[in-house]
Amino acid sequence: MTSVPTAPTGLGVLSPRRSLADMLDDRRVLSFLFMLPAVGILLTFLAYPLGLGVWLAFTDTRIGRAGVFIGLDNYISLMGDSVFLLSVFNTIFYTTVATILKFGLGLWLALLLNNSMPFKAFIRAIILLPYIIPTVLSAIAFWWIFDAQFSIISWALVKFGLLDRYIDFLGEPWNARWSVIAANVWRGIPFVAICLLAGLQTISPSLYEAAALDGATSWQRFRHVTVPMLMPILSIVLTFSVLFTFTDFQLIYAITRGGPVNATHLMATLAFQRAIPGGRLGEGAAIAVAMIPFLVCATVFSYYGLQRRKWQQGSADD
């Protein structure tokens, strides 16, 4: 901070030490000072925990006992850990299926909401409800819906005579997997639908009219106008959706806690399970760090998806 040259001030006094006021007049000093709070927050709450997590993953730290550096031992043992491998499978399965369903249904809903209909604003507001309810509350609601004895779904199916016994939603591995996916999809659709609806509304109606005159059927209008025009926003929403779903914790932990027999453990819930209740901070951190490559892949994918397409470039005078 000593070698920053400044323009001579009006006082013209040659002082060996520059005054504080002089320093604050310097754009570079000033901008550094203004950035400090943000840098401080980022370092404290982002860089430090991330760095600590990565470091812990190389140690055998347990709660109540400082660990020592053990290199890649945590990762090597995880490679042979069938529960960890199951959680990787679960996470990928959960993310893939839930994302496909959220986007399929969300797009469908957005297309429906984009039509003119009575009480449009009211219906759009209702759509957002699942998103507004705190995750844990909706998880508890789903827990009841999926309860082995009190499930309203089982009750209704039995009453209609379609089933003769209650479904054990959360007691069977595959039932449990589909059940938590259903809960995630229910929560995630509003976000996707509202974002895509916003995207749909930016498409000029005259493009559809031009396409109709050009002879396009409604499917062709969707295929050649809606889809390409929606791609930029679709890829953003897709990225966020994949990131949020991949790192999901609350919903799973509140409904199944990873059960039955780890069938619904995601990497996030397993990392927590091992690190906090299990006390093995180092191993938990290693599981959490193992998510990073997957998330980087998703981000890189989105980076290329998000790049301004060629047709969006050029003069923007309209």
Binding site: A211, D214, G215, P228, M229, W311
Partner: peptide
Amino acid sequence: VAMVFQNYALYPHMTVYDNMAFSLKL
């Protein structure tokens, strides 16, 4: 009938060639 719109209504994701060829391709 063919229509020319006030805001042109060109398909922004298609080249000039594809814009003109669109109806024939359909």
